[in-house]
Simulated scan of single mutants.
Amino acid sequence: MARPREFDQNEVLEKATELFWVKGYERTSIADLVSHTKVHRGSLYDTFGDKYQLFLACLGRVQQINYEFVFNILSGPDDPKKILRLFFEKTIDRALNENDKGLKGCFMTNIAMDMTVLDPNVASHVEAFNSKLESIFHNLLQQLQHNGNLASKYTVSELARFLVNTRHGLYITAKTTTDRQVLQSICNVALSFLD
């Protein structure tokens, strides 16, 4: 008879995510995961499968958290200009919020730089997130265009892709600076088409 689990799966996923976030997939060993999660190797394998399956579970969890963050801001009732500005303000807040665990930047962005070339499955997760974000930006920009508040020589699709890229760029830049003004200046240029 199998023993009941003696750990909370969400807590384990959170701890494993922290480790993958800081060290990356390749540099994180099973021994690291056992030590950091305080769950025996056998229990990790029984519950999540191998290291790769555990990583995918972490990726899915982070993807869901990111969706919630994005949707909570971008689906607000305000004017699309205000919503876009608020989104990038909150993105800067998150990018600069290095907590006591040393989690700087964005897990999805880190993974995009670390693994997508090597792993088509991971690439599809990142691509799905980017596509969803681009679609939301596209809808907001279409509202602006429909209201006559979008003056740009670029198409709505081009601007939406540019904003997705700007989001990732902010997280990458935040890994090397703590100066909010640096990130704010990037946003000012990126959103200048709203003025």
Rank of each mutant, 00 (worst) to 15 (best):
K51Q: 09
N130D: 12
I172A: 12
S131M: 13
L133C: 04
P80N: 11
R5D: 14
V34Q: 11
P120E: 12
V189Q: 13
F7W: 05
S157H: 11
E11N: 15
I136K: 06
T178D: 15
C187W: 03
N139I: 08
L96W: 04
K23M: 08
F71N: 15
E158A: 14
D79M: 07
Q143G: 13
K38D: 15
Y45C: 08
T91A: 13
F48T: 03
D78S: 14
H40Q: 13
A2E: 14
V122E: 05
D79C: 12
Q53Y: 06
K15P: 04
I30N: 15
I111S: 02
Q63I: 00
L133G: 04
A95Q: 01
Q63N: 09
T17S: 14
G76V: 07
A174L: 03
R180D: 11
K153V: 10
S124W: 01
F87Y: 12
V164H: 02
A95R: 00
L159N: 05
Q181N: 15
K15M: 05
S192L: 06
N130H: 08
Y45L: 12
F162L: 06
N97C: 13
A2S: 14
R27Y: 08
Y52A: 05
D93H: 08
L141W: 00
Q145P: 06
P120M: 06
R5Q: 15
R41S: 09
L183Q: 05
H138M: 09
S192D: 14
R167T: 12
S35G: 12
S75T: 15
T28D: 14
Y67Q: 10
K132Y: 10
F137I: 02
E98C: 10
K90I: 04
K90W: 03
F107L: 00
D119K: 02
Y67A: 06
E11Q: 15
G102C: 05
E89D: 15
G49I: 03
T176W: 02
S135R: 14
C106H: 00
R180I: 05
R3M: 07
H146P: 10
A190N: 09
E6V: 09
C187L: 05
L19P: 06
T91P: 02
H36Q: 14
T37A: 03
I30Y: 09
L59W: 00
A160L: 07
F7Q: 09
Q145W: 01
N121T: 13
E14M: 11
F55Q: 03
L19N: 07
L183V: 02
I92C: 03
E26L: 09
